[in-house]
Design a protein around this nucleic acid. Structure first.
Lengths: 150, 150
DNA sequence: TAAAATAAGACCGAATCAATCCGATTTAAA
DNA sequence: TTTAAATCGGATTGATTCGGTCTTATTTTA
């Protein structure tokens, strides 16, 4: 039920990246690029861990990377269009509480014919919806009372 | 993000227990008690694993146990009043995606002042609500189309 | 009184996960 | 042309948790 540490760190790293690169240039060439070392310094996470995280985030299309000297990272799209679900899925894969997904048998209860399996997608979708409702912009604020009213 | 195997098995075991003891006697003394061995046989799970599961379920107040010869297990309350959230909490403890709960520092991002921490309770509550909405009675049905309309 | 059946707790092996390190590739600047 | 800087990918090590098995204690019936 717990989020993996990698996914937890990824959220923190994305928040830091969004702070360092608040606005991406409209021409696609972000001016204020942040490198992995700066993100590690700001978040307090180990540098190798941040490097591995940004690799997955880039592969998932949440960050854009520019190699070489002067390179760095930038948000692929606006911070308001990146949600917790995107970050979690980028690091952990599809959001599912159980391995009882379509295509895999996983006969956990042969006698019951796995009667609980048809009900997991409902829970998974509800969870995904909850994560999708939290954009990155809301996480950037140090403390707000918006959550209380929701 | 994945549920632990123990919690997954606990759901299956509770479904099997609800099937073997559909109605609990109003006098509190259930007539049709199921023992751990029968549950293991019906679910296909290892018997020692089922024993460990029922121990936690009894401790959590979801099952009642009667020791000695002729003893066994019975649902503590009606199957309609037992939800997925109850079972998961009985096995895994409080439902929380991150260890960022009140009382524990866990300074994942000292530089940011853990700006993401105030937002986790919102997600946790949404997840708990989704699990609470699935009663045990719905899981007992082999296959129904109720989930589709919801 | 004795035997049988049960739950409850303790122990151990194994697997997954997190973290780290190293080398390869690419680009800009001197 | 050369040097420096920064990302990308894989492989390795260590530890924590998880899953499974076993033994012990308690209770009821014959």
């Amino acid at each position: 039920m717990r989020l993996s540490s990698m996914a937890d760190y990824a959220v923190v790293a994305m928040v830091a990246a969004a702070r360092q690169c608040p606005t991406v240039g409209a021409d696609g060439d972000a001016r204020a690029r942040a490198n992995a070392g700066q993100l590690a310094l700001e978040t307090g996470l180990p540098a190798p861990t941040v490097q591995k995280l940004v690799s997955r985030l880039v592969a998932a299309g949440l960050l854009t990377s520019a190699r070489g000297a002067g390179g760095g990272l930038a948000l692929a799209r606006d911070a308001h269009d990146i949600s917790l679900a995107d970050i979690v899925e980028a690091v952990e894969g599809p959001i599912a509480l159980t391995p009882c997904v379509e295509g895999i048998s996983h006969d956990c209860a042969p006698g019951l014919g796995c009667s609980v399996r048809p009900h997991w997608p409902v829970v998974n979708e509800a969870l995904r919806l909850a994560l999708s409702g939290v954009p990155l912009t809301r996480l950037m604020t140090p403390h707000d009372d918006v959550d209380m009213v929701q």
